[in-house]
């Protein structure tokens, strides 16, 4: 672990700030937050509701932009990228896993997983190969022609993970990936993420679950938009 930290980190955020304003109230979501995450790490982000976990994940995933501070991803400053540039960087580097799976109801398992490849312009034959590969790995090949509504929660999350990894991203962002699952299915999902991490994918996971957090290398605890504690897991 220490060795990894000496390379240039995959993610380096410095004094990151994010505010949410309504007409009368300004809420600070992230307050001069600074974090570094190395390539190949598995990091869990924890903290009470409203501490800024999801905001941080959205900024890391380039779905949202910070109001102030710096965000360097693979040596590139992305804090002030346009949406188009962010989207381009995102689709080649980052996969997402959500609590509520967020599969597209109109598409089959196969088609859901294939979608990122379509958007990155992968040729048809290559797509079939890669989708089958990843479905096989997630052990849902037999469900390839089913629609999301026809699957259990655990199966849906496998499909979602398959979709997240099919483009071979360097980073997976998981937002409470087991939140909607029972403990058995939850454990399966965590095993899958661990496997992916062991194969070299960096994983950042937001979770409420101490159990899940134990799968990570490091836990960053947030409170009121600031990092208050880091636990290195052994």
């Amino acid at each position: 672990m220490a060795g990894m930290m000496q390379e240039a980190p995959m993610i380096k955020i410095t004094n990151l700030e994010k505010f949410y304003r309504t007409e009368e109230v300004e809420t600070i979501a992230l307050n001069k937050l600074s974090i570094e995450i190395a390539t190949g790490e598995f990091v869990a982000i924890m903290g009470p509701s409203g501490c800024g976990k999801s905001t941080l994940l959205n900024i890391l995933g380039m779905l949202d932009d910070p109001d102030a501070g710096s965000y360097v991803f693979n040596d590139i400053e992305v804090a002030h990228f346009t949406e188009r540039k962010r989207a381009d960087l995102r689709k080649h580097n980052i996969g997402f896993v959500f609590q509520s799976f967020n599969l597209i109801d109109e598409l089959t398992v196969f088609e859901n997983v294939e979608l990122p490849l379509i958007y990155t312009g992968v040729a048809s034959a290559e797509r079939v190969k890669r989708v089958e590969e990843v479905l096989d790995k997630m052990q849902i090949m037999h469900r390839r022609n089913h629609y999301p509504q026809q699957l259990s929660g655990g199966q849906q999350q496998r499909v979602a993970i398959a979709r997240a990894v099919v483009n071979k991203p360097k980073l997976i962002l998981a937002d409470e990936p087991t939140g909607n699952l029972d403990s058995s299915n939850g454990n399966d999902v965590m095993e899958l993420l661990t496997d992916l991490n062991e194969q070299g994918t960096t994983i950042i996971m937001v979770t409420h679950s101490e159990h899940d957090a134990r799968y990570s290398h490091r836990i960053i605890r947030l409170l009121d938009g600031q990092s208050v504690m880091e636990n290195i897991m052994v």
Binding site: K91, I104, E106, L115
Partner: peptide, 12 residues
């Protein structure tokens, strides 16, 4: 929801 999922996974 569908639109944002598509965007997140790479749709321009």
């Amino acid at each position: 929801k569908e639109v944002s999922v598509r965007k997140i996974i790479g749709a321009e």
